[in-house]
Each structure stands twice: as structure tokens, then as C-alpha cells.
Write a protein that binds this DNA or RNA. Structure first.
Length: 501
RNA sequence: GUGCCCGUAGCUCAGCUGGUAGAGCAGUGGCCUUUUAAGCCAUUGGCCGCAGGUUCGAAUCCUGCCGGGCACACCA
């Protein structure tokens, strides 16, 4: 190992190994099997009136330690909080006190004793019996805290992400975020289940990827000797299930996109997609508002503050047309087919468009730069250009033939969801995917591949359907007030360090 | 991918107009039987991210590389 290099750390580890050995010499297994715990830390504190003077046992990691000769105070931290323990040789007895002398910060122990309050009023356990549950031989990072303020906190983001277990031990607010994440996901599932949706699982490994614009991860199946891609969306498979007769389906799972990483993008991320037969995007706007409201309620969030804008989840979201928003932002009449004019508008606003950018790309550039950042309050942007929506149905009662029924939901300037009234006309679908395939041939890596199986499925007959894709990580960010996706992912993607395998 | 900033003890940081490293916490030894960032005394611990270069001499200046943060680009 690299031990010799890290003298100080090596020393610490060596000392602790020796302590573990001493425990063994005393006939104590420093890594025992079970512990009979009667209460969790917060149960003792909240139930103090009834527990006062009673004997309880709690278990957890030692996170603070103050020795005073023949007595000491320490806090043990468990799943829900921490409780102070007081150990005095006269009360604990020789055996427990000898064990205690061999303990360190970071060890996991079981403490049994009477509940009391100290002179300063802190509810504590007067330990009569102390058991080692795990002798820690590698020190924890981080400092001390006073009145909620942590000194010398374990703050290096890289270290926190790479060693999340340490982050979770030392920074309890991190645990809260992930507990909330779980509650949000549970609430979303419950909401969909109660609304008659069937949760399904579709392939992650796919010979043809589709359903979104993105570059995929590529992998190799040895036995089949074929190239497979990690899915970039669940869409095409979920639609097959609608065709198969499940009227409402959803999948909440990882998608993978081989693109840059930043505050809102991780290469693998959790996508929720839900599809319902016999509904359109109008239904889904209302439904999505309710879904987010249910998620917010699950973590007791009524409003959140983003860059000075207060977002109230009880209120309906604004709905605004794609073209209208662009016209408002540019002060120009937007003609969807007028590539020349769109290029000019881009130039005028200092937006670099690639030489041969097609209409869809130009529009998206304008939206991204001029409109989206301003969408702080929840907004459904509706009725997108057909050119960038190959899976959506044309907007009814629209003569141009250039607009589809689609919405994207923005909150706090971030895209949260994307939805269509799904294209169900197989002839139209075939043509549009063929057009994508052509763009792809011309070198547009994000254009969608032609999926013959999918088109044939649509040819069998697909009921009118609406579908939504919603970024779960971003929803969690929104509801937990985190500004980086890495802070809502337990193990965000990190570059491999040299020497790692 | 590009730009800016950062990488010094287990943790948090100082030292950076060049003279080969310092603090607090943690650790170790001692004192201390109601403390709470406990206290007091003593003390161990450093490939100063890596590799080159300039120099009599580099943590410090220069170049490249590795890793990270932030912003931009691409996207959800």
C-alpha cells in the first residue's frame, strides 16, 4: 500500500490497530455481531419526560469526545441524530471504563444507562455499560461544532463526493438531502400508482437508441459480438407498451448521455417518463403540476426561493407559447421557416450559430439564450417547432403545419420536464424519423437513429397518447434547495484518479 | 471542449516580491469524576498534486500534465 508515504495517517492507523488488539486481549471482540438497542437518539430526547431515570440503550458512532480523567462526555450519532453520553468510572465500572479508554472518535459503540440531564441541561445517558460495536482504525475528517456551526468542516467538494460516506458521517445536513430525495421519489411513485399508472422496466442496453437528442455511451456485447448503447431515453419502449395495451405506464430509472457535466448535468441521471393513453399535453400540464405538488408536500415544501423569485407550488403555472416568447424577447416577427432571418436575429444578439445550422438549431439557440434564463417562475412553454420535435403530433387547428403540441416546463430557469401529445400517425412518424436519419447521415450526431421496430409498432395502431419526461434529479434540486446536481446524487460522476482501477 | 481560480500535516488553513515549512484541530504521553469548539503541560507527524525548466538555491518564478471548483459551450 501507500502507507509509508503517509506518516501521520499511518501512525494514527497503527495506534488504532493496537487498541483493537488490546481489546481482543481483554477478550472483547471489537467487531461483534449484534447489539440490543432500545431507543434511537431522538426518541430519547423527544421522550425525555417519560424516560427520565429509566435505563435505555442506544448505538451509534462517536462524533465528539471530551475526556476528563476518570470521566468523559461523548456524543454518539445514529441514523436520526445524536445523544450525549456521560461515562464515569464509578458508575460504569472498571471493565466498561477500561474499554472506554481504548475508544476513539469514529468508533461505533452501544451505550446503556439511565437517562438524565447534565448541569447544563443536555439530555444524556449516564453510561453503566459500554460496548464496542466497531473499532474504527481510519480517522474521520472534519472538526467540531458549536450551536450548529461547524468549525474546520470537511469542506473540500472533491473529497466529499469521492468519499461520500465521510461526508454523510460528518455533515448531517447531507443526510437530510438524501432522505428528502427518497421521500420525493416515494411520493412521485405513489402519486403515479394512485393515478392508475403501471410501473415498468425497459432495456438500458439497446442496439438502437432514441427518444431524445443526445450522444450515447457505447458498449460491446461479447457473446453477440454486437455494439449496444446505453439508453438516452425510455420513450420508444414505453410507447410500445401503450401500443401493447397498457393504458398508463411509467418508468423512473437511469438514463445515460455522453455529454458535458455541470451543475445540472451528470452522465447518468434519473429520468421519470409517464405515458397515458387517450390524453393530450393539456391534460399532462395539469397532471404534472399535481405531481410536483405531491412531491413538494412529501417534503413539506410550500414555496421555494430561487434567485429572489418565490415559487408557490399551490398555484397553477404560467403557460406561454414558444413563438410568442421568442417574439417578445427579440421584438421580431418569428417565421419558423425563414432560416435567413433567424440567422440574422442570432447575429444581432451576439449568438454564434454554426455555419450550416438548420432552423431548429437556430430557434433553440435563441430560446436558450434569450428566453429560458428568464423563466424563473414555473412556466410551461408550449407549442414547439416541428423541426425539433420528431415524436410530437402537429398542433390541431394550426394552419402552418410547423407547430406541434409539446411543452417544456421551466422552473428557476432550468428545464424540468418535456412533453408531447405523442405522434401516432405511422406514416407521418416514419417520414419524420427518416428525416432525422438523414440529418444523422449528414453528421448531426444528436439526430435520432431510425428505429424500424418502433415505427412498425406504431403501424399496428397506437391510441391517442400523451407522454412526459421529467428530470428527477432536478426536481430534487428544486425541492431541497440545492444548486448543483452533484449535491443530490450520492455518488456523482468523477474523473478516475491515476492509480485507480 | 474553452476561460478563470484552486491543489501545503488525517481535517481547516497560513507561508508565495525565491534562502529548502508553520498554526489550530485531530493523534501520542501526562494532569483533570457534569463537559460541550472542555481546559492545562509536553510531543509525533510534511515526495508543499506530478514532471520538467530557470537559479548557487524553488512550496514560492516559468512550461507541461493530473485532479477539482466556478463560468461558458453542448444537452435534460
Amino acid at each position: 500500500m501507500a502507507a509509508e508515504k503517509e506518516q501521520s495517517l499511518t501512525q494514527i492507523i497503527q495506534f488504532r490497530k493496537e487498541k483493537a488488539a488490546k481489546l481482543q486481549e481483554m477478550g472483547i471482540n471489537p467487531y461483534p455481531y449484534v447489539y440490543d438497542r432500545t431507543h434511537r437518539s431522538t426518541e430519547i430526547i423527544e421522550g425525555f419526560d417519560k424516560l427520565k431515570g429509566k435505563t435505555v440503550s442506544a448505538a451509534g458512532r462517536i462524533v465528539s469526545l471530551r475526556r476528563m480523567g476518570k470521566a468523559a462526555f461523548f456524543h454518539i450519532q445514529d441514523d436520526v441524530g445524536k445523544i450525549q453520553c456521560y461515562i464515569k468510572r464509578d458508575n460504569a465500572g472498571e471493565q466498561s471504563y477500561e474499554v472506554f479508554k481504548l475508544l476513539d472518535m469514529g468508533d461505533i459503540v452501544g451505550a446503556k444507562g439511565k437517562v438524565f440531564t447534565t448541569r447544563t441541561g443536555e439530555i444524556s445517558i449516564d453510561v453503566s455499560e459500554l460496548v464496542v460495536l466497531a473499532k474504527s482504525i481510519r480517522p474521520l475528517p472534519g472538526g467540531k461544532e458549536k450551536e450548529g456551526e461547524t468549525y474546520h468542516a470537511f469542506a473540500d467538494k472533491e473529497q466529499r463526493y469521492r468519499h461520500r460516506h465521510l461526508d454523510l458521517v460528518v455533515n448531517p445536513e447531507v443526510r437530510d438531502v438524501f432522505r428528502k430525495r427518497a421521500q420525493i421519489i416515494t411520493a412521485v411513485r405513489a402519486f403515479l400508482d394512485q393515478s392508475g399508472f403501471l410501473e415498468v422496466e425497459t432495456p438500458v442496453l439497446q442496439p438502437i437508441y432514441g427518444g431524445a437528442f443526445a450522444r450515447p455511451f457505447k458498449t460491446q456485447h461479447h457473446a453477440l459480438d454486437s455494439t449496444l448503447y446505453l439508453r438516452i431515453a425510455d420513450e420508444l419502449f414505453l410507447k410500445r407498451l401503450i401500443i401493447g395495451g397498457f393504458d398508463r405506464v411509467y418508468e423512473m430509472a437511469k438514463d445515460f448521455r455522453n455529454e458535458g457535466m455541470d451543475k445540472t448535468h451528470n452522465p447518468e441521471f434519473t429520468m421519470l417518463e409517464y405515458y397515458a393513453a387517450y390524453v393530450d399535453y393539456n391534460f399532462l400540464m395539469d397532471f404534472t403540476e399535481e405531481l410536483i405538488r405531491a412531491a413538494a408536500e412529501a417534503v413539506d415544501v410550500k414555496t421555494v426561493e430561487i434567485d429572489g423569485t418565490s415559487i408557490d407550488f399551490s398555484k397553477p403555472y404560467r403557460r406561454a407559447g414558444y413563438v410568442e416568447l421568442l417574439e417578445e424577447a427579440t421584438g421580431e416577427k418569428i417565421v419558423l421557416s425563414d432560416e435567413g432571418k433567424l440567422t440574422k436575429i442570432c447575429k444581432k444578439h451576439g449568438i454564434d450559430a454554426e455555419k450550416d445550422a438548420h432552423v431548429g438549431a437556430l430557434l433553440e439557440l435563441l430560446m436558450k439564450n434569450l428566453v429560458e434564463p428568464k423563466l424563473q417562475e414555473p412556466t410551461f412553454v408550449i407549442d414547439y417547432p416541428k423541426a425539433i420535435s420528431p415524436l410530437a403530433k402537429l398542433k390541431r387547428d394550426d394552419d402552418s403545419g410547423e407547430i406541434v403540441e409539446r411543452f417544456e416546463l421551466f422552473i428557476g430557469g432550468r428545464e424540468l420536464a418535456n412533453s408531447f401529445t405523442e405522434l401516432t400517425d405511422p406514416v407521418d412518424q416514419r417520414e419524420r424519423l427518416m428525416a432525422q436519419a438523414e440529418l444523422r447521415q449528414k453528421g448531426d450526431e444528436e439526430a435520432q437513429a431510425f428505429d424500424e421496430d418502433f415505427v412498425r409498432a406504431v403501424e399496428v395502431g397506437m391510441p391517442p397518447t400523451g407522454g412526459v419526461g421529467l428530470g428527477v434529479d432536478r426536481l430534487v434540486m428544486l425541492l431541497t434547495d440545492q444548486t448543483s446536481i452533484r449535491d443530490v446524487l450520492l455518488f456523482p460522476a468523477m474523473r478516475t484518479l491515476p492509480g485507480d482501477d
